[in-house]
Amino acid sequence: MIDFLKNISKVPLHVINTNISFDEYIPISIVASNKDLVFDVSSSKEWEAYLESFFLKHKKKVAFGGYLEQRDIYSRSEHFNKLSEENQRNIHLGIDLWCDADTDVLAVLDGEIHSFKNNTNYGDYGPTIILKHSIEGNEFYSLYGHLSLESLKNLEVGTKFRQGEKIGTLGDSSVNGDYATHLHFQLIIDIEDYYGDYPGVSSKKTLDFYKQNCPNPNLLLKLPNETLIEGLSKTR
């Protein structure tokens, strides 16, 4: 499946507004060991201020990365935080694209709506859409989390979308689980029994399974300078 996903496209694929050039993307790391994160990581407002400064400094519009990053940000929520270190869910299974609220979110490939849901736990996805893809006999799923509430209006399971077609917009911190605005984009091989939701963060104990079931989204996105991101090349 890894080789299949890698070879679906030879060029980078968009999951947000195509008017934003890939030249305006920049890698970002929010691993726990990043010494630049000298603020309260539990505060969405402080994240927004940090990202605004980051974009101004680098003259970019989208910051991306995060696959297999071990992060401190999830410790603020009981939804992720368990008593033992082994069971604490803090290893990120998707790629985040940090940018402005209301940015268009696009279907990465031809697909149909598998499910959708507003995941309202503190620190959760908020509004979420999952697409099902069937290509050359291979079935897999793409998850789009932290959307706007409007993104879930008038949706129906089975509705088909073409590659690059708008499926929603990004939500702000008031609806997206209390994060600075971003898209959580994740690939899933076996959706199991989930509906409108799927774990986007793993514990050390379950990581081997999730690394296999949730391969690197950059196999499709092919975002620039990916080797600068901790974890992005580990599943190649």
Rank of each mutant, 00 (worst) to 15 (best):
L143A: 12
L5A: 11
N87C: 12
F55L: 13
S43H: 09
Y179Q: 03
L56I: 06
N17Q: 10
E150M: 03
Y198T: 03
L143M: 14
K160V: 13
I8C: 06
K61T: 02
M1K: 11
F80R: 00
S21I: 02
E165N: 03
N216Q: 10
I30K: 01
L97S: 01
I113H: 08
F185S: 01
I188R: 10
H133A: 09
D190K: 11
L207P: 00
C99W: 01
K222D: 07
L155H: 03
N90W: 03
G200F: 11
L13R: 00
E52A: 09
N17I: 02
E48I: 12
H92I: 07
S151M: 12
Y198V: 09
V62Q: 01
D40G: 04
N118W: 08
T159H: 05
N17M: 08
L183Y: 14
F22Q: 08
I26E: 15
N81M: 12
D23Y: 08
K204N: 09
F39S: 07
I167V: 08
K211Q: 13
Q212T: 13
N34H: 04
G123Q: 04
L93P: 00
K117Q: 13
V41I: 15
S148C: 05
I229A: 00
Y144V: 08
E156D: 04
Y67A: 03
T206E: 15
L83W: 01
V108C: 11
D208E: 11
N118A: 09
S53Y: 00
L228M: 11
L152R: 06
L183H: 07
N118I: 09
K6A: 12
I26F: 15
S142N: 06
T227W: 04
V41G: 03
N34W: 11
G231M: 01
N176K: 12
E150N: 08
P217V: 03
E165T: 04
L228T: 14
P217H: 08
N218Q: 05
A63E: 06
D36E: 15
T159E: 10
L232F: 06
T103P: 05
V105P: 11
S202W: 14
I91W: 00
L5N: 08
V38I: 02
I113M: 08
D3I: 04
G171E: 14
E112S: 10
K153Y: 12
N7A: 11
I2F: 15
E156Q: 09
E24Q: 12
R71T: 05
T128C: 14
D36W: 03
V108S: 05
L228Y: 06
V41Y: 09
D3K: 15
E226F: 01
L131D: 00
F22L: 15
V62C: 05
L106R: 02
P127K: 02
E78K: 15
V175E: 07
L131E: 13
V31K: 10
E78N: 15
I73Q: 04
F116I: 03
H14D: 14
Q186I: 08
L149W: 00
L228R: 14
I135L: 13
P217L: 05
